[in-house]
Amino acid sequence: MAKNKSGQGSRKTETLTLRLDPKVKMMIELISRIRRQSITGVVEAAIEEVAYDTGVPYFDDGRINNHPLGSILSDVWSTDESERFINMSYRFPTLLTYEEQRIWETIKSSAVFLRSASTSLSTDWEIEAIGALDREMIRRYWDLLLEHVEENRDSRTIIPFKPPH
């Protein structure tokens, strides 16, 4: 994921650098001229088209079914990184990288992130044998959670996160 430069805060767009075959680059430039679109617009349109043609294993109602990525992305997308992560982890568990699996397993094993009587903002879905998650606590401790997982990356077991007192 692209990172913002310090001092920029949240941005509405991200920068992506690509290495393209010169022939493909020329093709994109010609399409942009023909359609009177920017190169960015051509690339975005092509990716959206592929997204609607690409099936993704999507977890819902206790089962994994294939759905077109373009039609279900809104179930996962959020401008908040922690929210986006837990939605992706729940809905697309088979697509997680090893590092993402470690974060997800740490969340699920940490009592502070599980719904409790004081939870004001929980997930609208539950994890079998665990329950709902406390979205507000995950947001509050997101950066510290990522540091915790990184610090314990060499551990052979998941170390639950405990918030500082």
Rank of each mutant, 00 (worst) to 15 (best):
R156N: 14
R156E: 15
Y98N: 11
R140E: 09
N87T: 07
I103N: 00
T94N: 12
E150I: 10
S74K: 11
F161D: 01
E126S: 09
T123H: 02
Q101S: 12
I158K: 00
I72N: 02
S155V: 08
A132H: 03
H67V: 13
H67K: 14
E151D: 13
R102C: 03
A117L: 14
Q101V: 15
D80I: 06
N66G: 15
I103F: 00
Y90T: 01
Y98K: 12
P93F: 02
D154F: 09
S82K: 02
L114F: 09
K162W: 12
T123M: 04
L133W: 05
P160Y: 00
E147I: 10
D143N: 13
F113R: 00
I159A: 06
T123D: 06
I107D: 01
W77P: 08
F92M: 04
L146I: 07
P93E: 01
I158R: 01
I72E: 01
S89P: 05
E105Y: 13
R135W: 05
Y98A: 11
E128P: 08
A132T: 05
A117I: 10
S116D: 08
V112Q: 04
R135E: 07
R139F: 09
L121K: 15
Y141F: 08
S120T: 13
G70K: 04
V76Y: 02
L96C: 04
E147K: 09
S110Q: 01
P93H: 04
L121F: 14
N152R: 03
I130H: 06
D80N: 07
D80L: 06
E147Q: 10
Y90D: 02
E99G: 08
E126K: 08
R102H: 05
K108Y: 07
R140T: 10
G70R: 01
E147N: 10
F113V: 00
L144E: 13
T119L: 03
V112A: 05
L114V: 10
I159G: 04
I86F: 04
K108R: 09
W142M: 03
F92H: 02
